[in-house]
Computed example of a mutant assay.
Amino acid sequence: MTALDAVRARQSWSKVDDTAPSHEELLTLVAAAGRVADHSSLRPWRLIELRGSDREVLGAAISKAQGDTSPSTKPLRAPLLIAVVASYRKSDKVPRWEQEAVASGVAHMLSLLLDDAGWGVLWRTGHYTRAKAIAKAHGLGKNEELLGWLYVGGKPAGKKPGRRKAVDARKHVSRMPKPKPKKK
């Protein structure tokens, strides 16, 4: 399968089974995902692996962030969650937005690699990703922000991935506008 084939085949899997890649398998994919374009090679990202009871801790933090009394069960929907963290570095050349783009690029590349390796993946976000309770649960530093979680598990037999419409590239690609003639 080519890279183009893999990207075209990628789908979000909102329901996965209870199998997940091992820590070692994950490290191999993260090493590859980390090859995204990264101005000045700042590596302004990190990933946090949540398995087992880590997901319950996250569920309690989500509930606290939302003001709920019972723990959220959302983190229990997949056996592996990968928290995507933008870890901003001081730089005179690379602005904050560009560093966040790198962290997002790593997450997206990792989701493609996981999908290509046969795992079901869904990138979840939510308003509570920026909540203090969530930051504390993840041990985020003052120069870090959570961008969301990759929910990862096995693709259930006989199940279909989420729906995804084809992209009409013509609607999203244009040419640079021609300069207007100067008035004399």
Results as ranks from 00 to 15, higher is better:
52 G>E: 04
108 H>K: 01
67 G>W: 15
99 Q>V: 10
36 V>S: 09
111 S>Q: 10
76 L>G: 02
88 Y>A: 12
80 L>H: 02
94 V>L: 06
48 I>D: 00
127 H>G: 13
52 G>S: 05
44 P>Q: 07
102 V>W: 01
130 R>W: 12
113 L>M: 08
60 A>K: 11
113 L>V: 05
76 L>A: 12
67 G>H: 15
117 A>N: 09
49 E>G: 00
103 A>R: 00
116 D>M: 08
46 R>D: 01
43 R>H: 08
78 A>R: 10
52 G>P: 03
42 L>Q: 10
69 T>N: 15
36 V>P: 08
65 A>Y: 09
100 E>M: 14
70 S>D: 15
122 L>T: 05
82 I>W: 04
107 A>K: 05
123 W>Y: 03
42 L>K: 08
98 E>D: 13
61 A>G: 10
54 D>C: 00
102 V>L: 09
85 V>M: 02
90 K>R: 15
112 L>N: 09
66 Q>S: 14
127 H>I: 11
62 I>G: 09
48 I>P: 00
47 L>E: 02
94 V>Y: 06
76 L>D: 03
41 S>Q: 13
85 V>Q: 00
36 V>I: 03
59 G>D: 07
112 L>H: 11
72 S>G: 08
45 W>Q: 03
133 A>F: 03
38 D>V: 00
126 G>K: 08
44 P>F: 09
128 Y>T: 11
97 W>S: 11
58 L>S: 05
41 S>R: 13
40 S>C: 14
107 A>E: 07
97 W>D: 06
44 P>T: 13
133 A>N: 06
100 E>S: 14
55 R>V: 01
90 K>W: 12
95 P>R: 12
111 S>Y: 00
121 V>G: 01
39 H>C: 09
124 R>W: 05
59 G>E: 09
53 S>Y: 00
72 S>T: 03
45 W>F: 14
117 A>L: 09
90 K>A: 15
74 K>T: 03
116 D>E: 13
73 T>L: 14
103 A>S: 08
59 G>C: 12
38 D>S: 05
115 D>W: 01
74 K>H: 04
79 P>L: 09
126 G>H: 10
69 T>Q: 15
89 R>M: 09
100 E>I: 13
99 Q>L: 13
96 R>K: 12
96 R>S: 08
79 P>G: 10
52 G>Y: 03
116 D>G: 07
68 D>T: 14
130 R>D: 14
66 Q>I: 10
99 Q>T: 13
68 D>G: 13
132 K>E: 15
91 S>G: 07
70 S>Y: 13
123 W>I: 08
88 Y>M: 05
107 A>I: 04
79 P>Y: 02
112 L>D: 00
47 L>G: 09
84 V>G: 02
87 S>E: 12
82 I>Q: 06
85 V>T: 06
129 T>H: 13
100 E>G: 14
53 S>P: 00
118 G>C: 04
133 A>I: 04
56 E>T: 11
80 L>I: 02
71 P>N: 13
115 D>F: 00
50 L>Q: 00
60 A>M: 10
105 G>K: 06
58 L>D: 06
123 W>D: 07
103 A>C: 06
108 H>V: 11
87 S>A: 14
102 V>T: 14
88 Y>S: 05
83 A>Y: 02
117 A>H: 10
123 W>Q: 08
96 R>G: 11
59 G>Q: 01
133 A>H: 07
51 R>Q: 10
77 R>I: 04
120 G>Y: 07
63 S>Y: 11
113 L>P: 07
124 R>F: 03
51 R>I: 04
70 S>V: 15
